[in-house]
Simulated assay, not measured.
Amino acid sequence: MSRYHDLKYRAVTTLQRRIANPITRRLPFHTLLETTGRTSGLPRRTPLGGRRIGNAFWLVSEYGEKSQYVRNIRANPRVRVRIRGRWHTGTAHLLPDDDSIARLRGLPRANSTAVRLVGTDLLTVRVDLED
């Protein structure tokens, strides 16, 4: 990773972790992804954008394998997703061969724009929902 991308990653993730995420986690209808912490075993909730299409929820991680929730998924793919205030259980799949830029075109515009602007290593994630 270039020095520019490293600085960008650190600045954006610090802003997200300390300011944006604590606020958006409390919004009742904001989409959340709940993973299990790979070390702690505790639930970890991450606000994010994406879209439900049929029985799958699609999202694009802006930092790919560096994202903590992606690392948690790799350790345990069982997740929950809160969509419009309702929790759904499912299994997450990391799709490195998917065209993440094309995928973003089918996801909510505001979030997709932000992911393209700040992301440095895009990775598509599909969650197969059980309910």
Rank of each mutant, 00 (worst) to 15 (best):
Met1Arg: 06
Arg3Asp: 06
Tyr4Leu: 14
Tyr4Asn: 07
His5Trp: 12
Leu7Pro: 13
Lys8Thr: 01
Tyr9Pro: 07
Thr13Asn: 02
Thr13Met: 12
Leu15Glu: 01
Arg18Ser: 05
Ile19Leu: 08
Asn21Thr: 01
Ile23Met: 06
Thr24Tyr: 07
Arg26Asn: 00
Leu27Thr: 13
Pro28Gln: 11
Phe29Ile: 14
Thr31Cys: 11
Thr31Asn: 05
Leu32Cys: 11
Leu32Gln: 11
Leu32Val: 01
Leu33Met: 11
Leu33Tyr: 02
Glu34Pro: 04
Thr36Glu: 01
Arg38Glu: 01
Ser40Asn: 03
Gly41Val: 09
Gly41Cys: 08
Arg44His: 06
Pro47Ile: 14
Leu48Ala: 06
Gly49Tyr: 14
Arg51Ile: 06
Arg51Thr: 02
Arg52Leu: 03
Ile53Trp: 04
Asn55Ile: 10
Asn55Ser: 10
Asn55Phe: 04
Trp58Val: 05
Trp58Glu: 13
Ser61Gly: 06
Tyr63Thr: 05
Gly64Lys: 06
Ile73Leu: 08
Arg78Lys: 03
Val79Lys: 08
Val81Phe: 08
Arg82Tyr: 01
Gly85Pro: 06
Gly85Arg: 12
Gly85Thr: 10
His88Ile: 10
His88Phe: 10
His88Arg: 01
Thr89Gly: 15
Thr89Gln: 12
Thr89Ala: 13
Ala92Thr: 08
Leu94Ser: 00
Pro96Gln: 11
Asp97Ser: 15
Ala102His: 03
Arg103Asp: 14
Arg103Thr: 15
Arg103Gly: 10
Leu104Arg: 02
Arg105His: 11
Arg105Leu: 12
Gly106Cys: 00
Leu107Arg: 05
Ser112Gln: 00
Thr113Cys: 14
Thr113Val: 14
Thr113Leu: 15
Val115Trp: 00
Val115Ala: 11
Leu117Arg: 12
Asp121His: 00
Leu122Pro: 09
Leu122Phe: 07
Val125Asp: 01
Leu129Ser: 06
Leu129Asn: 02
Asp131Val: 08
